[in-house]
Amino acid sequence: MHTNSLYQEVILDHNRKPRNYGKLDHASHHATGHNPLCGDRLDITLQLEDDQINSIAFQGESCAICKASASMMTAAVKGKSRANAETLIHEFRELATGKLDTNQPHHLGRLTVFSGIRDLPTRVKCAILPWHTLHAALNSLDSASTEADDSAPAMPNHS
């Protein structure tokens, strides 16, 4: 794939001006995500009320892919129920690892801008880290790591 189709304007824009950036003072849930391959880290804080994500914020040191993914994720899950957020987490993981059939109904909307990441196995973890971390926060785990899952795809066949 052409890299420029990954670094699209929407991703560059969220990298430049991340939404929901910072830390909630009175979070009910939080988690820290690590990508040990690059040393990136991400903190997510959120306020869950009646099983609904009322507010959410993220902050951390990361690449453009990770930051844009986190920014768009927070925008997507704000106001959603925990169950709906978990559905998005699942669908985004499937999308990033090339397992999601985007012709079938899904809930990702503009997040499909990340579909090109499936061709860059070394960068899949950058895109998924915020979603792992959100999953950890929702399940009251303190931390998430990109190395603690089975979402890494097989290497593409470069011929």
Partner: peptide, 22 residues
Amino acid sequence: GIHPHDIGTILNQDGVAVRTGH
């Protein structure tokens, strides 16, 4: 203002292989 991983991915597009990371 640009993360090394983004640098490495875009350089690869030009056939340039560098290491990015710690």
